[in-house]
């Protein structure tokens, strides 16, 4: 299938989608849709989405989709997968849901290597609630709760998810960071993350994404924020997991 066309598993009744103009969610969900199409998984897939902008994907696909509560998408996916292992569980969330309120769930699922595929969209802000600081907000970046720029001395450094999880996951787990600037590569990562779930391991993909609404950026500035500032701090690529320790 051409990567220019709409994925087969997109629910056409819910298009055009509800995301803001210039938002990267549509591209991440396109990469997911193409990966599901290529693997022929739509019959087995269940998609759970978090609260925040990711919630707007609640009817995005033709396979079953459900919303959960803020930060609680991973335990829903874990419960679903444990009780019904034949299903393929995708947990979809933002950086606030995954790295702040739901971090213990992300961390614990990674520790246990629960065979789910978690996709986290990093746009450096809480977007749905009006542009507050997220764990991923860059140093000096202005948000509604860091109006003079994020200060490391006050709120610490931006959180690097895949790199953090690399220290605790089992070697078979899959960790990667893609970007909506390179959808074909992001699709390959998500495809691997789905395959890794089928092989019985935890898989996590962070997708660098855009939020011109809350960044208050023009199209050109949006792209340069993503490609220059974000990608410099958050290096896209597959992240090696630590080896198994001798015990």
């Amino acid at each position: 299938m051409s990567e220019l066309s709409m994925p087969r598993c997109w629910n056409k009744d819910s298009k055009p989608h509800r995301f803001c103009p210039g938002c990267g969610h549509g591209l991440v969900l396109k990469a997911l849709g193409l990966a599901v199409d290529e693997l022929g998984l739509e019959e087995r897939l269940v998609f759970a989405c978090d609260i925040g902008c990711s919630l707007l994907a609640w009817d995005f696909f033709t396979f079953p989709c459900m919303q959960t509560h803020h930060g609680r998408t991973i335990p829903v996916a874990v419960g679903l997968k444990r009780a019904s292992p034949d299903l393929v569980a995708v947990a979809y969330m933002g950086d606030g849901g995954g790295y702040s309120i739901g971090l213990q769930h992300l961390f614990s699922a990674a520790l246990r290597s629960d065979p789910i595929t978690a996709i986290l969209v990093n746009n450096t802000v809480y977007a749905m609630t009006g542009g507050q600081m997220a764990p991923t907000t860059l140093p000096g970046q202005k948000t509604e709760t860091t109006p003079f720029g994020r200060e490391e001395s006050d709120t610490g450094l931006p959180f690097k998810g895949p790199e953090t999880l690399a220290a605790v996951v089992q070697p078979e787990a899959y960790l990667a960071r893609g970007t909506v600037a390179r959808v074909p590569l992001l699709k390959k990562m998500i495809k691997k993350a789905l395959e890794r779930q089928l092989q019985g391991s935890f898989a996590f993909v962070e997708a660098l994404s855009t939020c011109p609404t809350n960044w208050r950026t023009s199209a050109a500035d949006t792209w340069s924020f993503l490609e220059q500032r974000m990608s410099r701090y958050y290096r896209p690529g597959e992240i090696a997991t630590a080896g198994r320790e001798e015990s």
Binding site: P75, R82, Q104, H105
Partner: peptide, 19 residues
């Protein structure tokens, strides 16, 4: 499954029930 907290226990129960 012994979950990481009660929130996870509740939401994982929800996931199982949905399936």
């Amino acid at each position: 499954l012994q979950t990481e907290d009660e929130l996870a226990a509740g939401f994982a129960t929800i996931g199982a029930v949905v399936s």
